[in-house]
Amino acid sequence: IPPPAKKPLTKIVSHLLVVEPEKIYAMPDPTMPDGDIKALTTLCDLADRELVVIIGWAKHIPGFSTLSLADQMSLLQSAWMEILVLSIVFRSLPCEDEIVYAEDYVIDEEQARISGLLDLHVAILPLVRRYKKLRMEKEEFVTLKAIALANSDSMHIENIEAVQRLQDSLHEALQDFEGSQHPEDPRRAGKLLMTLPLLRQTATKAVQHFYSIKMQGKVPMHKLFLEMLEAK
């Protein structure tokens, strides 16, 4: 007997799956000597390119582009690191205690120690464990990523009602998805939303980590990454 066909996904979740950006690669510079400067240079360069992609992706979230430009900027300035961290965490789910910064940049604890990335590694792993336990699916990941953006608690929002409408539509999409795909667990949407505080904590630690690296001035950083770091 074939398994029962899965119910169709909600429009928003299907749309978010379609607009999910392509993988990007870290491409560490082979001419640089191995060590913490190389590792951090690779990550900062990767983050800068990911940011360009995240800004383009945000414009495809239904309702985001109708916000004022100022509100779009405020949401992205607050949430960009949460979006970056959530993407890294989702990529790392199939691994055991390794962080997949990119397909070609998978770091285990020992490599993290050598490369000066141990603090970041230790900060991200609890989030990976949390989503592993929940067995987070791709549909849930893309929806939660959009929710993290809409729910970024920026202090500078002009049109609070419009941002609230965006939050409501994404929240509803998550609830509808869980209602149709996971009727056996009526609290699944809530469980996913309850991971957002740990995501914010982790992103805050990551921002602090990169901000202190910026202050030390030893690692080259591209302009967009610097601009977003300074906005925090």
């Binding site: 360009v52 383009g56 414009k59 430009l69 967009l224 601009e227 906005a231």
Partner: peptide, 20 residues
């Protein structure tokens, strides 16, 4: 806004992430 020039430009630019 002047301080956040690149973000501002990228949001105004109509290029989709799929093209990037």
């Amino acid at each position: 806004k002047e301080k956040h020039k690149i973000l501002h430009q990228l949001l105004q630019n109509s290029t989709s992430p799929v093209d990037l």
